[in-house]
Amino acid sequence: MASQRLQTISLKVLIHKKRNEIVMAEADGDFVDILLSFFTMPMGTIVRLINKLPQVAIIGSLTTLYEAVENLEEQLFQIWECKSMLFHPRNPFENECRKLKLSIDDTEPIKYYICSDWNCSRRENGGLYTTFKNVSCKCGK
């Protein structure tokens, strides 16, 4: 079994007990980095992660829109990968977020794919790549 290392994040909170309010909070840089990383997450990822929770959580019309698109038939999309792109959007700060002590994003690490025809990939106008598997190249392969 792989050894798991516990990591701690420091957060000190001063609470006014009579008014039940937070008066002051002091956190280390790791906590602030994690908190701010939530702003880099695409909305589709946030809704997808919330839908995995055991309790039903609704984010207004976003949840309804997500479910409606999820129920669309794949032939309504230009290519079937388009549906996957909608439900698994890439975080532009994904590499930085992976370095944090806590990550709630379950997106697979990025992989790049090129045309299976090596000559096509090397052409002057070629060399295109995608992050989605099995997408057709402009050459048709």
Rank of each mutant, 00 (worst) to 15 (best):
S3A: 04
S3T: 13
Q4N: 05
L6E: 14
L6N: 14
L6K: 13
L11C: 11
L11D: 02
K12E: 02
V13C: 12
V13S: 04
L14I: 10
R19E: 14
R19M: 01
N20K: 15
M24G: 07
E26N: 05
A27V: 06
A27I: 04
D28C: 03
G29F: 02
D30T: 06
D30E: 15
F31N: 03
V32N: 10
L35Y: 12
S37M: 06
S37K: 09
M41S: 02
P42W: 06
M43W: 03
G44S: 06
T45G: 01
I46A: 08
R48G: 01
L49M: 05
K52A: 06
L53M: 12
L53R: 15
Q55S: 03
A57V: 15
I59Y: 07
G60E: 12
G60V: 03
G60K: 09
S61V: 08
S61I: 01
T64F: 04
L65M: 08
L65P: 00
Y66E: 02
Y66F: 11
E67G: 05
A68T: 14
E70C: 01
E70T: 04
L72R: 12
L72D: 10
E73P: 06
Q75C: 03
L76F: 13
L76T: 13
F77T: 10
F77G: 06
E81H: 13
S84E: 13
F87H: 15
P89I: 04
P89Q: 04
R90K: 09
F93D: 02
N95H: 05
K99W: 03
K101R: 13
L102K: 15
S103Q: 09
T107H: 11
T107Q: 12
T107D: 07
E108Y: 07
E108S: 08
P109L: 05
I110H: 11
K111V: 05
Y113S: 01
I114N: 07
I114S: 13
S116V: 03
D117N: 15
W118C: 01
W118L: 08
N119P: 01
S121T: 15
R123P: 03
N125Q: 11
G127I: 05
T130W: 08
F132P: 01
K133F: 08
V135C: 10
C139D: 05
